[in-house]
Write a protein that binds this DNA or RNA. Sequence first.
DNA 1: AATTTGACCCGAA
DNA 2: ATTCGGGCCAAAT
Length: 120
Amino acid sequence: MTMQNNNSFFERVYDVVRLVPYGRVTTYGAIAAFIGSPQASRMVGWALNASHNIIDVPAHRVINRNGILSGKRHFGGPDIMQQLLENEGIEVINDKITNFSKLFWNPAVELANYPNFAEN
DNA sequence: AATTTGACCCGAA
DNA sequence: ATTCGGGCCAAAT
C-alpha cells in the first residue's frame, strides 16, 4: 500500500490552507514559500483545483499576491468565491479585496512556531 | 516517456 | 500603469 499522501505536495498545501482563520486570506506564493518550494506557487493553485471535494479546505481564502480573486472561475458560479469571502466580512470590489494588508495571513509569520512544517 | 498545462510570482522593461 | 519572459514542478495527457 502506498500511503504517502501526508507528505505529498498537495497535502502540505491543504495542511496550511486548513489553518487560515475565518475572515483572513493568504496567497499562493506565501503557501508555496512556507512549505519549502518558494517558486512553486502555480502548483498551489493546482492543488486547490483538486480540493473541491475536501470539505475542510477553505480554498476561497487563497488569493493572489495582489489581493485579486484569481481563482474565482473554479468555484461553482462566477460569484461564489466572492460570496464566501463576503460572508466572512471581507469586502470585494472588482474581484479585489479591500484591506488586503490587514487581512493577509502569512504562514511564515503566523506559523513560525512550526518550523518543521516545510521539512516533510 | 515526453510534453503540456496551470486558481502564480517577480523582476525588468 | 501594463506587458513580458523565465522560473518552478506535480499532474494530466
